[in-house]
Design a protein around this nucleic acid. Structure first.
Length: 597
RNA sequence: GGCCUCGUAGUUCAAUGGAUAGAAUAGAAGUUUCCUAAACUUUAGAUGCAAGUUCGAUUCUUGCCGAGGCUACCA
């Protein structure tokens, strides 16, 4: 039984015996005591004045006295205004620590035997991945890891937008200007090559518009009549008719793109369990539309288009099928969602990692699914994230200010390499080890910076700041881990065995040590919070707190140098457990931590 | 116009309705000089504005101001 629930139980008993008031243990909110006061947990007594018929201070005094008397773990208390600060006896900390140190897989929750699907990365095949995709993918991957630690079986999926007019544009441009160029012949990554022709299309298209306007057409007419656009539209029709030549070209070019994406994902360190392609799913959902029409959930307008009326929910009407009978994106999403739940028995939840410009779309989607009678619709969640800005300004694909994902990652890694070499930190490393380290630092910096911020907020990514070794950064935490590892190696040399690292009950713990143990004990709780709110930032904050707190302890520890203190089992034990927690927390963010750096 | 999200130190980020709004950076002053890429101490500095609910509001409600997004038979 954990400390918090013991205290809750104690307080509940106190309320009952002192004021004859019955409450549910778990309703009693305990919060960590603020640093400037004595105590570990604080109970707020303001709301209980009515029950006790006394002022908050007296209520606190009475409850505190009761707890000290009846609850073994409580060694003392103090009351400030309406706040009852509960002090714990020191054996609580050593017991707690030893229990944790002997728990395998500490931080993970029991397997729940239920599945959760997390969708992240929904790239178009006409252009390479950029900074926005990085936030998307790191978020989704991290949430998958967090859900896994929370006890769910996670299915990580990617939906690839591989069809439609956009890819036809690249195809047309490649045929016109490409001279049979391939990734092999050009030395370009496949996604970059195809992206290049998408840009070429746009350039040619704009030139044609200009010419048409010059010859007397209006802007609007010109945009619709440009010959190259008509060609792309023809290409799409041919594709839908599965004309062999078009289809083969489409497969060839998409193949290049996938190879390019795979390389990017590999460097990012993310994987998927299942890939969905829109070319396979874009016809889904029509059945549901027909069925919904029959059941009266949808209605038909005079022109034959099908709509859903969400005005009761405070939203508008929304189209689900065009008058020509073709599907819109919404239709496809309805069908895909239903298909996935059929495909994966035991699936109870689906998380969509998609930018916040689609907030409305997902609100509507979930409402429609609910209307159609799918209970799991309430368990669908749109993990919405804001744009990433750069110090240089906004990213705009039209103005070419987009930051390419590969370029950015390479830049991060080379910055890490540059700093490391400059400081001569890699003596004794093989070339492979050194390169692995640069990767670890560069990508760790990037991932941590993107994940430490609340997803829904628009954020500013500063590459320079992210790779600092001070402050709330990935490298700082990695560095802390490396320092702890150095201590553990040292302890090893001194013959302190790692397997039996417990703290003996009669050791007097310092304040920093108690604080560390408190943080360590918080891990499962933070995992739960992060999972329930889909917030990797909770984990990031946790790991940072731990690293920062350890730094204070490290100063105390002074294991090296002239005033070196005794390397005791308890100090080593504590260090080892901190290292484990940091490593675990960082792994939930998809970040490696090195033993040496 | 309607709807959604955001607005916190110079800057980047925190804060299950709780105490004197935390960190980190940058700044100022100092101690020290290899704790792996130093550390420590001190200092100054913020809730866009106005009401409301509450014992208590950065948090909930309303209005206004500001930023962004959505509002297509586009995806």
């Amino acid at each position: 039984m954990n400390i918090v629930s013991q205290l809750q139980q104690g307080i509940a008993e106190g309320l009952k015996s002192l004021y004859n008031h019955q409450v549910n243990d778990s309703e009693l909110g305990l919060q960590p005591t603020r640093k400037e006061f004595e105590g570990t947990y604080t109970f707020v007594t303001f709301p209980y004045g009515k029950i006790s018929k006394k002022n908050p201070m007296e209520t606190g005094e009475e409850l505190g006295a009761f707890l000290k008397e009846s609850c073994q773990v409580v060694s003392g208390y103090n009351v400030v205004k309406g706040f009852l600060n509960i002090e714990l006896s020191s054996s609580v900390w050593t017991d707690l620590f030893n229990q944790i140190a002997q728990t395998p897989d500490y931080g993970t929750h029991d397997r729940k035997g239920k599945k959760v699907m997390v969708e992240y990365a929904s790239p178009n095949t006409n252009k390479p991945l950029h900074l926005g995709h990085l936030r998307n993918i790191f978020l989704g991957y991290s949430v998958s890891k967090i859900y896994d630690a929370f006890g769910y079986d996670v299915v990580k999926v990617q939906i690839i937008n591989d069809r439609g007019i956009h890819i036809c544009k690249s195809m047309v441009a490649w045929q016109k200007f490409g001279n049979e160029e391939t990734p092999a012949s050009s030395g370009l990554k496949g996604d970059k090559l195809v992206g290049k022709y998408y840009v070429a299309f746009d350039k040619a298209y704009k030139t044609e518009i200009k010419e048409l306007v010059a010859s007397g057409k209006t802007q609007e007419e010109a945009e619709k009549q440009a010959p190259i656009l008509l060609e792309a539209q023809q290409e799409l029709i041919k594709w839908e008719a599965k004309e062999p030549e078009t289809y083969a070209l489409w497969e060839k070019m998409n193949g290049w793109v996938y190879k390019g994406f795979d390389a990017t994902y590999e460097q990012m360190g993310v994987t998927f369990d299942k890939l969905y392609y829109e070319s396979n799913t874009y016809l889904l959902g029509k059945e549901q539309v027909a069925e919904g029409l029959k059941n009266g959930h949808f209605f038909k307008k005079d022109d034959g288009s099908v709509w859903v009326d969400l005005t009761d929910e405070g939203l508008d009407q929304k189209i689900v099928q065009r008058s020509d009978g073709t599907a819109v994106y919404m239709t496809q999403d309805i069908g895909t969602a239903i298909q996935r739940f059929k495909e994966y028995p035991g699936l109870i939840k689906q998380v969509y990692t998609v930018g916040n410009e689609q907030d409305y779309h997902f609100k509507v989607l979930f409402l429609i699914l609910k209307k159609l009678g799918y209970k799991w619709a309430e368990e669908c969640y749109h993990l919405s994230y804001g744009m990433v800005d750069l110090p240089s300004g906004k990213m705009k694909s039209r103005e070419g200010t987009v930051v390419d994902a590969d370029d950015l990652m390479n830049e991060m890694v080379s910055t890490a390499a540059h700093h490391t070499k400059e400081l001569g930190k890699i003596d004794g490393f093989t070339k492979e080890q050194a390169e692995e380290l640069y990767d670890t630092i560069g990508l760790g910096a990037l991932k941590y910076f993107l994940l430490k911020v609340d997803p829904k907020k628009r954020m500013l990514f500063d590459p320079q700041e992210s790779i600092e070794f001070h402050g709330n950064t990935g490298p700082f935490i990695q560095y802390t881990h490396a320092r702890i590892s150095a201590i553990l190696r040292r302890a090893d040399e001194l013959g302190l065995k790692k397997d039996d690292l417990t703290i003996s009950p009669d050791i007097e713990l310092s304040k920093a040590e108690c604080e560390l143990i408190y943080l360590i004990s918080e891990l499962p709780n933070r995992v739960k919070l992060a999972a329930e709110d889909y917030l990797p930032s909770v984990i990031a904050q946790y790991v940072y707190d731990l690293a920062k707190e350890y730094n204070k302890f490290y100063a105390e520890l002074a294991i090296f140098g002239e005033q070196a203190q005794e390397v005791t089992v308890s100090r080593v034990a504590l260090s080892a457990q901190v290292a484990i927690n940091i490593k675990f927390g960082m792994s939930l963010l998809g970040i490696h931590v090195p033993d040496r750096m």
